[in-house]
């Protein structure tokens, strides 16, 4: 079960209770009728389940900045998708009390055939802004993304770094209650990363809750006050950022050897 509401002074802005996300690996690979019947006849439509998130509980207070660490496939993105309402929990409960600006993976919801200008409008409206509001803030977004010259080029011709710039600029144009940044900034150049971190810091100062996924522990330490280490869909450790990172670091070393 997942519940969204406006923020009204609740103690926790995000409250995840025993959430489980289940994928069925046997049937989800079948996407046409022919294959369905072939597998049905061969009796291969068994249930082969996989838990991307298992019995996961986490409470986040407004204004906190959480960093999520863990190896690829640990369940970090699944968790953030769960919080954004893109995935529904199979079991358990997720309560989110506030507006969310999700930046999950690359592209952040762009239509590749549309131009950057059209995508800025579409994406802003998807985030719940009105068209009028987007017209008013259009220049501001372009200014931040530094992409004045290419506005009328289809976005498929953009590099991933340029796409990330636009996505970040749109998502952070207005202060959301919760900002989710999932590795999108990794593709930006150093200067732009610094600029984004500065903006995230400013938003944190104004009370935004930040959820950040990064493989760069320095970034996590710089931006976040809390951290959560996830492995195989479960919390290994969560708490203050220094503590979690110091415990996670040796683990990284072991895996590299």
């Amino acid at each position: 079960m997942i519940e969204f509401s406006k923020y009204n002074g609740e103690e926790y802005i995000i409250d995840i209770e025993n959430a489980t996300v289940r994928f069925n690996m046997a049937t989800e690979s079948v996407d046409n009728i022919k294959e369905y019947f072939v597998k049905l006849v061969k009796r291969q439509l068994m249930f082969k389940e996989f838990f991307a998130i298992k019995d996961f509980s986490l409470k986040i207070k407004p204004g906190e900045a959480w960093g999520f660490v863990g190896t690829n496939g640990a369940g970090k993105s699944t968790l953030l998708k769960l919080i954004s309402g893109i995935l529904e929990p199979y079991k358990g409960k997720v309560v989110v009390n506030g507006t969310i600006a999700p930046l999950i993976e690359l592209g952040a919801g762009f239509d590749m055939d549309l131009t950057a200008r059209e995508n800025i409008y579409l994406n802003g409206i998807l985030l719940g802004h009105s068209k009028k509001f987007m017209s008013e803030h259009f220049d501001e977004i372009v200014e931040f993304a530094e992409l004045w010259d290419f506005l009328d080029v289809p976005i498929k011709n953009y590099s991933s770094g340029m796409q990330a710039r636009i996505a970040f600029a749109i998502a952070t144009m207005v202060k959301p209650d919760i900002l989710i940044v999932d590795e999108v900034l990794a593709v930006g150049d150093y200067k732009f990363q610094a600029k984004c971190q500065e903006r995230m810091k400013a938003m944190l100062a104004e009370g935004t809750t930040l959820l950040l996924v990064s493989h760069n522990l320095d970034d996590i330490k710089r931006m976040c006050d809390h951290a959560c280490w996830i492995d195989k869909g479960n919390i290994v450790m969560s708490g203050l950022v220094e503590e979690v990172c110091n415990n996670y670091m040796p683990e990284l070393g072991e895996n590299n050897e």
Partner: peptide, 9 residues
């Protein structure tokens, strides 16, 4: 799909 995967709508 690309939109649905990234934003709740």
């Amino acid at each position: 799909g690309p939109l649905i995967k990234k934003i709740f709508v």
